[in-house]
Structure formats: structure tokens, C-alpha cells
């Protein structure tokens, strides 16, 4: 389960970076930095512009990976790292 969680995290990170690049290109540096700080904004922007930017597949994969991560975290109780404090 830990390996699956790690792979889900890695895939999620790749999707995040791909969408972030699009965000920087389309919305400029300001909102791009906001996207780095707040991955949730990148995620929402990605879904709103998924069709226009042709990133539907990336967003779908990212969403599946997030859900998978949450399921593994809560249902199986697997956590790779101590919660950051």
C-alpha cells in the first residue's frame, strides 16, 4: 500500500506541475505563484479550463490519484510521512 501511495503521490505531483505550467503560460506569473502556493487553485483552474486547454485527461488522472491517496490514507491508515507541523 505504501508503494501505491507513493506512486499516487508522484503521479499527482507530475499532473500538478503540468497544469501549473499551463497556468503560468495562460494567467501570468502572479496567478502562477498563487498556483504554487495553493495547489487547490491550480486544481480548480485546471478543471475550469480543462476543455479549452486540452488537459481533460491530466485532470481526470490527477483527480483519480487524489481520491486514491485519500482512500489509502483513511481506509488503510497508511501515511508515508508524519503530518507536517
Amino acid at each position: 500500500m505504501e508503494a501505491i501511495l507513493y506512486l499516487a503521490g508522484l503521479g499527482s505531483l507530475i499532473c500538478f506541475i503540468l497544469v501549473l505550467i499551463k497556468l503560468f503560460k495562460k494567467q501570468g506569473v502572479g496567478l502562477g505563484i498563487l498556483g504554487i502556493i495553493c495547489a487547490l487553485y491550480t486544481f480548480i483552474w485546471g478543471w475550469i479550463h480543462a476543455k479549452k486547454q486540452g488537459i481533460q485527461n491530466i485532470m481526470l488522472i490527477w483527480t483519480i490519484l487524489i481520491v486514491l491517496g485519500i482512500v489509502i490514507n483513511y481506509v488503510f491508515g497508511v501515511n508515508l510521512w508524519e503530518q507536517y507541523r
Binding site: 503521490g9 499527482s12 504554487i36 507536517y84
Partner: peptide, 15 residues
């Protein structure tokens, strides 16, 4: 919300 940077690398992202 699972932070992709944290889950993958164990490094806290800026947010």
C-alpha cells in the same frame, strides 16, 4: 486535500 509535494517527497510545499 493531499499535498502532492508532501506525499511524494516528504517536503512541505509553500502552502
Amino acid at each position: 486535500w493531499v499535498c502532492p509535494v508532501w506525499t511524494c517527497a516528504g517536503i512541505p510545499c509553500p502552502g
